[in-house]
Each structure stands twice: as C-alpha cells, then as structure tokens.
C-alpha cells in the first residue's frame, strides 16, 4: 500500500506501572514487526524510540496500572487523544501484581523500605486503566500472547472485532491435546476458571495453570475451590494462587477475600 507518511494509522504505546514485558512482546513480534511498522506509524513507543509523536492516535496500546496521581491524570490525556484504547497485560487490565498493595498499608511499606519515605509519591492502590477511563478492549496475560497482540492490531486495522475468546483455558488445553493435569495427576490447576489466550502453556509442561490471564467469563468458584483443596491446597495456598498478577480482578479479589473470611 502506498500510503503517504502521515496518512498511516497512528499507533501509540504507553507505559504505566509495569515491567515492560508486554511492550516488549510487540518488539518480540520479529516476523510481523516490519509489517506493522509499514502499516502503522508508531508514534509513541519509548521502548523502541525516544521521540514521542504529537498524536492523535488511531490505536493506543496501554501497558501498566495507575499508581500515582500524575498517571491518573496522564491516562485522561491519552484517552482524549486516542480513537481506540486497548490495554495490554494484567497490570493495565487488572492492576497487576503491584495491586497486592491494595490489601496493605502503603505508608507502612514506605517507612519500612525507603530511607526517605517522604520522597515517595504514590497512591494507596494500584488500579486498572478501566477504573479511570473507558477502554475499548482489554488484552489479558502476564505477559500478553504475541499472537493475540497481532490479532488485536490487525483486527483494528481491518475494522473488525478481535477474535479473543473469553472462555476457560481448558478449551485450549483439550484442543492442544494435553492430558489434564488435574484429572490424571491430581495437580491443582486454575485452568477451569482462567481466561484463555496462552494456548494452555503450563499444563503442556505438566504444571497447573496459575491464572496469569485472569478470570474467564464464566466462573463457578463455590464448585471450583473444593477441587484445589482436594488436590492439597489449604486456605493460604488458595489465597496465594488467586493473589498474583490478577489479584485485583473483581472475581479473584472477591474469592480470595471470601476464603480469608472463612
């Protein structure tokens, strides 16, 4: 396609509180990256270049959660400058592992960790982007799956809905032909309640899913938790396995609180 410079769709990639792993997934799309760079103008992508463009952005990919007042303001500006805003990864979608602070006293942490806690300016909570601005699509995972990232970009370029199923990891596990680690080995696995997208990676290596894609769209915790207990998890284990990258996802948060309250 012979688009003139400036007529290509503008892609913005934005970073909030996160580890950069999801942004790097875009750089990791070796085969497709040249194609992406030809089709879209990458306007703001600090991981790959240090020159932010002026916007507006046809598609903004947002990584990371909101943990400071500055970031809470910054996301408003990004939203206002973006036609479509897609969050990438567990931090942007659910608050990330840093949302463990939501259960603790942040001032106490600051005093214990930093020599000069007064230098630290942070919010008491880590919240997903959707808690601040409307989001067009949320891509799950810690980190995201590169195939799904390319699907989201190509889908928006083509003006169609991304094909990203929200059913359980078990669907992918069976399609992959993996023997169920829960049924055949008695290994606890979060697959039945976890959002698909990883291709059921962990069970393929004989370990249980640990829920890095967050909750699926159809969860039955009262039936599921006893299964974890049968396979050897006590209350603390259950709480721990729910309180990782997606700890602040509504369903996981409610279930872990319920476990602790007995």
């Amino acid at each position: 396609m012979a688009d003139m410079p400036g007529t290509r769709p503008q892609l913005g990639v934005w970073k909030f509180a996160s580890c950069d792993g999801c942004q790097l997934t875009l750089l990791d799309c070796e085969d497709e990256l040249l194609g992406i760079a030809e089709r879209v103008e990458i306007s703001y992508f600090l991981e790959a270049s240090s020159a932010p463009g002026p916007g507006p952005y046809d598609l903004s990919l947002v990584e990371g959660s909101v943990t400071t007042t500055q970031d809470a303001e910054r996301i408003q500006g990004i939203r206002a400058a973006s036609r479509r805003l897609v969050t990438i990864g567990a931090c942007a979608t659910a608050g990330g592992v840093q949302a463990l602070r939501n259960y603790a006293d942040v001032a106490e942490f600051q005093a214990a960790v930093y020599a000069r806690p007064d230098y630290i300016d942070t919010l008491a909570t880590s919240t997903p982007i959707s808690a601040h601005v409307p989001v067009d699509f949320e891509l799950r995972g810690c980190p995201i799956d590169r195939g799904q990232l390319i699907e989201v970009i190509t889908a928006y370029l083509a003006g169609r809905t991304p094909d990203v199923p929200a059913h359980s990891v078990c669907f992918e596990c069976k399609r992959r032909g993996t023997t169920c680690v829960t049924v055949a080995h008695g290994t606890p696995c979060l697959g039945p309640i976890t959002h698909a997208g990883c291709g059921a990676l962990c069970p393929a290596y004989h370990r249980g899913c640990y829920g890095c894609f967050g909750p699926s769209n159809s969860i039955n915790f009262p039936s599921f938790i006893p299964l974890l207990r049968r396979d050897g998890m006590d209350t603390l284990d259950v709480v721990r396995v729910l309180r990782t990258f997606n700890t602040a996802a509504e369903e996981f948060d409610a279930a872990s609180r319920k476990e602790l309250s007995g």
């Binding site: 359980s168 697959g191 969860i219 039955n220 009262p222 039936s223």
Partner: peptide, 9 residues
C-alpha cells in the same frame, strides 16, 4: 449447574 464449571472439557 451448582457443580458445573462450564469449562468445556
């Protein structure tokens, strides 16, 4: 339904 995980297995 109270037992089913709707997991699709």
């Amino acid at each position: 339904a109270s037992r089913c995980l709707t997991c699709g297995n």
